[in-house]
Amino acid sequence: MAGEAKTSAFMLGAATVMIGKPDQLFDLNPEDHSIGLVKNFRITSEPSYTDLTQGVKNQIVYSVMTGNTVRASMEAYEYTGRNIAYSLGLEGSALAAQTVETDLTAPASAADTSVTVTDETGFAVGDYVMIQDGAEDKVYVRKLTAVAATNLSFSQALPKALPAGTLVSKSNAISIGSKEDQPFLAAKIVGTLADGSENVILCPKIRITNGFSLGFTTEGFDNLPYEFSFFDQVATDPFYSEFKGEQAKLLTKK
């Protein structure tokens, strides 16, 4: 039969994308490094050639590959602090979900620049905190200037009186529009074919050069449209000898 299949290596499946530091490439794992739900992962190679022609009809007689751009794109759906930092071209590996919170043990007055809390453990000078005044959108943001025994001091005075029990939570502060260069990262992608077999892509040196998009919509789930830029290894890179002359490596059982 024309076009008859020879294998079950059909491309229909999902992928796990893991990101970490370059020296962690071979140890990247879903528990510590996965960016979560990812759809439509795609990696492409775009070779370019310089042709030598002859005659008035410019017939091609020779060709040399003069470039080979590798790109990867995907849609990341989990808006964690780490994923958002990566999408902004920043170092995100150290960010984790914040669980540090406390509450006021006594009422605070308008114009107060400090409050008494149940427990100051986990808070530090320079942290940004969110003060939840009842309603879910009634949040005051303050930067901590001092942390003492059950006392937090802020960079700005409170705008109104707050009752005892008001929640104070530590937050991750992520710069938008920063000019800071993202360090080089490594990525490992494990994707499954339609028959359940795995393909692994090792990316030893990348940067995330596009991907920040944050929209609060009611029509559908928003996503971070990540784009990876790939780089060649240099002698000082961790796995230079293994990836010399290539920007990624595909491992397949098929």
Rank of each mutant, 00 (worst) to 15 (best):
residue 106 A to C: 00
residue 96 A to H: 14
residue 30 P to W: 14
residue 10 F to I: 13
residue 132 Q to E: 01
residue 16 T to R: 01
residue 217 T to K: 15
residue 132 Q to T: 02
residue 232 D to T: 09
residue 89 G to R: 05
residue 209 T to P: 05
residue 244 K to N: 15
residue 174 I to K: 12
residue 36 G to I: 05
residue 11 M to A: 09
residue 149 A to D: 13
residue 212 F to L: 07
residue 122 G to C: 14
residue 22 P to K: 14
residue 113 T to Y: 02
residue 32 D to S: 15
residue 61 V to P: 01
residue 235 A to S: 04
residue 208 I to R: 06
residue 22 P to R: 10
residue 245 G to C: 11
residue 143 K to S: 12
residue 202 L to I: 05
residue 124 A to W: 13
residue 192 T to V: 07
residue 1 M to P: 02
residue 196 G to H: 13
residue 101 E to S: 14
residue 184 F to A: 01
residue 165 G to C: 11
residue 47 P to E: 10
residue 1 M to E: 09
residue 151 N to W: 00
residue 187 A to D: 04
residue 51 D to Y: 10
residue 238 P to S: 08
residue 214 L to C: 05
residue 206 I to D: 06
residue 115 V to Y: 04
residue 57 K to G: 15
residue 233 Q to M: 14
residue 183 P to G: 11
residue 31 E to A: 15
residue 197 S to Y: 03
residue 130 M to R: 12
residue 133 D to H: 03
residue 57 K to I: 07
residue 191 G to Y: 07
residue 37 L to F: 01
residue 198 E to C: 02
residue 161 A to D: 01
residue 38 V to W: 01
residue 10 F to Q: 11
residue 29 N to D: 15
residue 140 Y to Q: 03
residue 241 S to Q: 15
residue 182 Q to P: 03
residue 106 A to E: 05
residue 115 V to G: 01
residue 111 A to E: 01
residue 55 G to H: 08
residue 209 T to Q: 05
residue 194 A to N: 11
residue 34 S to R: 08
residue 234 V to I: 10
residue 237 D to A: 05
residue 192 T to F: 05
residue 63 S to R: 15
residue 109 S to R: 06
residue 201 I to M: 07
residue 225 P to Y: 09
residue 219 E to H: 12
residue 221 F to C: 00
residue 31 E to T: 15
residue 180 E to V: 15
residue 219 E to I: 10
residue 193 L to K: 15
residue 144 L to T: 07
residue 65 M to F: 04
residue 15 A to L: 00
residue 12 L to D: 10
residue 151 N to I: 00
residue 114 S to P: 01
residue 233 Q to Y: 06
residue 128 Y to N: 09
residue 238 P to L: 13
residue 199 N to G: 09
residue 232 D to H: 13
residue 187 A to C: 06
residue 178 S to K: 10
residue 228 F to I: 00
residue 93 S to G: 10
residue 185 L to C: 08
residue 250 L to Q: 13
residue 142 R to H: 05
residue 78 E to Y: 02
residue 54 Q to S: 14
residue 208 I to Q: 06
residue 46 E to Y: 03
residue 24 Q to K: 12
residue 70 V to S: 03
residue 162 L to N: 02
residue 226 Y to A: 02
residue 57 K to V: 08
residue 189 I to Q: 09
residue 1 M to Y: 14
